[in-house]
Design a protein around this nucleic acid. Structure first.
Lengths: 230, 230
DNA sequence: AATACATTCCAATAAACCTTAGAATGTGCG
DNA sequence: CGCACATTCTAAGGTTTATTGGAATGTATT
């Protein structure tokens, strides 16, 4: 039966994508790459895995066409091969979050008050940020901020917060965000700020989650509206 | 570092879902299950794989919580554990379709004229079907039709078409659909009908694709509006 | 109680995958 | 040119996964 063979071929091709997302390390790489393009070494240190291993995993991702690479001097810069890959990652994560109790448990354990935004709270946050009623800070490394950030957010990488406290207005509410729900930088930042007497909270949204809701993202000072889903 | 360990835990959980979709056979099972719940034996014969192997794959899917099972007499009926699983499958397929040239090639080889619908052509098809200007036929097995079908479609399983030709009006345009782009039943049905002198074409949409566009689905004569994405 | 049937469990083998270490490639810089 | 550096390739180990056959479970039927 020729239909059987060609059908098998089709599912096999989709399974190439499936296999690519079947490893925790590769998922972490996808998560990191949704913050913007990165060199192999950067990925390795961000994900805390050996460079050689990162390279091997990137090869798998590249063969499944989820990422693309370009050379820049001595570095090789990897990027997701489309915004649909971000959606796929978010989709996988949301399925896992919805159906795997273990994941929800681990998330709760990790973060004391996991504030998950709704459509309304996002809209109101955007409005308050526009009015200057709250200060939104992006605590990721600055390169990631430059690649794209929430509207009206200012960059204040976690590592620099302590010595840049003077930049923050004492009375105002501060909202910190980072790479998304699996990232703990905003948690840490908010904790630190509260210790220092600020009124700070964190949100679990990152740029990808925000954009997936159809909300605008800024890059290099220019406002860009990200397409909703793929 | 405790953050590292808990982070690993999170990605590992999502990877459970990734691993579940890393096999062509399991993807085919998900595709079949998005047509409605099915017993193990049915899945085995639909996917042309051994029952024991189907059972093993279903176990993996169940452990990743993508499917659920219930007993009904001697049979065990499997179903997707939510409509977000259908979205995940569509998402994976669309990523593969967009990025893997091999898949597009295989699809083109398989089907002479792969008519892919757009938002407009879907709306116009729906309208014409409502008006009775075209006859939409669902050529899947009748159980699947009963579980949910396109609006105004009538059930005419591929196996029965030949002896039920009299039910079809000779002049009118006939539009056949089946399980989606990876399914060849509508292709075959349209070919057969054209041979018999009818004006017939197929569309690649199945119920899942149609519903994912936010369009209504009927089941048991009752119109149901499926939620868009998860 | 005995049989038929659908499905799962168990064990075994081969193939695929992850990871690490060491060698190789290719680029920029002195 | 030769050295330093980022990255990839190759090889080898240990582990996991896919598949198959045979035994076991649990439900309906007689």
């Amino acid at each position: 039966m020729k239909t059987r063979k060609s059908k098998d071929l089709l599912f096999e091709q989709v399974a190439r994508v499936g296999k690519a997302v079947a490893s925790p390390k590769r998922l972490e790489l996808l998560d990191l790459l949704s913050q913007g393009e990165k060199a192999v070494e950067t990925l390795a240190s961000d994900a805390a895995i050996d460079v050689k291993l990162v390279s091997a995993h990137l090869k798998v991702l590249k063969e499944a066409r989820l990422v693309e690479a370009r050379r820049e001097g001595r570095f090789i810069i990897y990027r997701l091969s489309g915004s649909d890959i971000v959606s796929l990652w978010l989709n996988l994560r949301s399925v896992a979050e919805k159906h795997l109790a273990e994941l929800r448990l681990a998330l709760d354990l990790m973060s004391a008050a996991p504030e998950r935004l709704t459509a309304e709270s996002r809209a109101s946050l955007l409005e308050k940020a526009r009015q200057g009623e709250v200060i939104v800070i992006d605590v990721r490394p600055e390169v990631e901020y430059l690649a794209g950030h929430l509207p009206f957010a200012r960059s204040m990488p976690l590592a620099e917060i302590e010595r840049r406290l003077a930049e923050l207005p004492p009375g105002k509410e501060i909202v910190a965000y980072c790479r998304g729900p699996f990232c703990l930088m905003s948690e840490e930042a908010a904790g630190l700020l509260r210790e220092k007497g600020f009124r700070a909270r964190k949100i679990t949204d990152g740029v990808a989650e925000w954009a997936a809701e159809g909300l605008p993202i800024e890059a290099y000072g220019t406002r860009i509206r990200h397409a909703r889903q793929q």
